[in-house]
């Protein structure tokens, strides 16, 4: 049975609306993608939908109480909420470096969670403390 399905590609801000015809889980026809990456997007959505995760983890002794983190690559969509819940309980020690691994191979997905900015320790500099 051929089935019509609409996808919105999120690979870039264009957000193309892509009309696809799918038969037995296979992509048969595709229309509306402005570039090739749209085809990859639909294939990925059909076989193994993935999303980037960006969130924060707590930091002790830093100039801010939190540091932003991200998944190095996209995670399986169904793992987004469980990984986010796990990261709510992670606590790092300052200083933190951009790119530092926060959790390796999170929930056995093969994807690392990394820090997405530098965060100095509190005594290093008075970021957030204007009177220092």
């Amino acid at each position: 049975m051929a089935e019509h399905q609409e996808f919105i590609c999120v690979t870039c801000p264009m957000g193309c609306a892509i009309q696809a015809v799918i038969e037995d889980g296979e992509l048969k026809e595709i229309e509306g993608e402005a570039c090739r990456r749209g085809i990859d997007w639909v294939r990925q959505e059909l076989s193994d939908p993935r999303r980037m995760l960006t969130t924060t983890v707590q930091v002790e002794g830093g100039v801010l109480p939190l540091v932003p983190v991200r998944s190095r690559d996209a995670l399986p969509k169904d793992e987004i909420l469980p990984v986010a819940a796990l990261l709510r309980h992670v606590v790092l020690q300052a200083p933190v470096k951009e790119g530092q691994i926060v959790v390796a191979d999170v929930l056995s997905t093969g994807v690392d969670i990394i820090a997405s900015r530098d965060l100095d320790a509190n005594e290093e500099r008075g970021l957030g403390h204007p009177d220092v």
Partner: peptide, 18 residues
């Protein structure tokens, strides 16, 4: 802290802080 920054300027999908 979300990604989506710099796709054109740096050709990579960066977060705001990055």
């Amino acid at each position: 802290i979300h990604n989506g920054f710099g796709l054109r300027i740096f050709d990579s999908d960066l977060t705001g802080p990055e």
